[in-house]
Design a binder for these strands. Sequence first.
DNA 1: CGGTGAGTTGACTTGGATCAAATGAAGTGG
DNA 2: CCACTTCATTTGATCCAAGTCAACTCACCG
Lengths: 255, 255
Amino acid sequence: MALVAPTTHAKPLESPCGGCVRRSHCMLQALNHAAPDGRGAHSQPDLPVTSRLLHRGDFLYEQGERASNTYVVAAGALKVWTGDASGDQQVVGFLSQGDLAGAELTRDGRHGSTAQALDTTSVCVVSTHKLMSALAGSPAAARAVFDSMGARLDDMANLLLRVGQKNAEQRLASFLVGLLDKQRHLGLVTDRIELPMSRADMASYLSLAVETVSRLLTRLQGAGAVKVQRSHVDVVDLELLRSLAGQSAERHRLH
Amino acid sequence: MALVAPTTHAKPLESPCGGCVRRSHCMLQALNHAAPDGRGAHSQPDLPVTSRLLHRGDFLYEQGERASNTYVVAAGALKVWTGDASGDQQVVGFLSQGDLAGAELTRDGRHGSTAQALDTTSVCVVSTHKLMSALAGSPAAARAVFDSMGARLDDMANLLLRVGQKNAEQRLASFLVGLLDKQRHLGLVTDRIELPMSRADMASYLSLAVETVSRLLTRLQGAGAVKVQRSHVDVVDLELLRSLAGQSAERHRLH
DNA sequence: CGGTGAGTTGACTTGGATCAAATGAAGTGG
DNA sequence: CCACTTCATTTGATCCAAGTCAACTCACCG
């Protein structure tokens, strides 16, 4: 049976949308079916969507590049990272199935970060300009795009909360719990995690040192919460994992 | 003369939009003037915009609340923070003139964070539902909203970069530089900052302890970069401040 | 199998948190 | 106008969680 984790056996879409397994959940579909209650498609011509296949290490887009396309991840996984003038890099998110990509924009309309494939990955590509025109035909689609961006904002806020208020162990545990929640949301298995990213990526994302991530994975395993074998993590005790993720060591509050 | 900082002497708008000083820069205006090149307004009825006045401490919206409105800050300042089950709170952003608010959405359509006035603040309120319908009439407006959200995503990514990769001094310095950049972008003074938020808010935003923020402000002053008097900061040496904000690993820090 | 890079483990150091106490500013009401 | 409370901020002294440095193991690959 093997309900696989999102990054395993990723396949390119032969024909965009038409053969897409996620079609019914995709925000772009709202454009072609403006009235989900069955009142039928409107006259708006279909939005041209193309598919692009990436291999491990390939860039979907790079920071500073003129941002002309918007993307939806169909299969696989990407990391999104920002760099600055002094060479520091920071992973700010991991994207998987269904996530919107390419929307973080600098004031002058360039990509504010870089998206890089962690694995064989397939994305749906649409011209941002055409997407905006297409939204004109469909409040429901506008809403879907707005909501996707809103969800990413919420994700980042939660990441900031974790990095700012939780200790290293809590950060790592809640990272794992977050991955499980995401998998459940996508209808995948929730007792196992396949980590598509390196320890260094996890460390950057959680603002920790690689050594700390490694030590803590060992510790979580020792505590009986998970069983770790390289990039393969079995969830042994989800409740324990959640509790390790949760409580903070009574830090300062804002009134 | 006194070009004041954005939060001083904030006034409510007597009549939304019509009398708004920022009218020409407002993303909502794109809705009423879909063709900026002068081809004239289209038939789309005006989007109903109301104004709301907040006083220090008032909530614009609260985390968990059903998200039905979207906001644009007209004057004043707000802090945006997220909390979690264990009571931890984290300031994830400060909003001022022209910023979009209320767009961080949980999966079930609720506000993912709380927005609270730091000062007397005026915001423009529009129903998200009506906004989405209105965007149907104007790709340019859809683009403006998309870009605003994209800019907030970029802001958060940069905050993550700072918190993850910079030491305390660099974080504080780049926070100040960021405020100056924002002020310059709005056409305000760039040699002076009026901090509308408490030290605790700054500390949370930068993921530092209040004591550290206080100590570092003293240190930046000692280095001759700024002159601090409570919430009033004079920029003495912008280049120095920038250099203190910039480089990461290199130990050219103060004594 | 030797080489290479990722991951783990151990020993030691330190930046910034925490604890504690003083000082300052802004009321409040007598 | 001044005594008194309250809360924000600053300053000082100490400590520890996580970073850094270093050595080793493991998987994978030509």
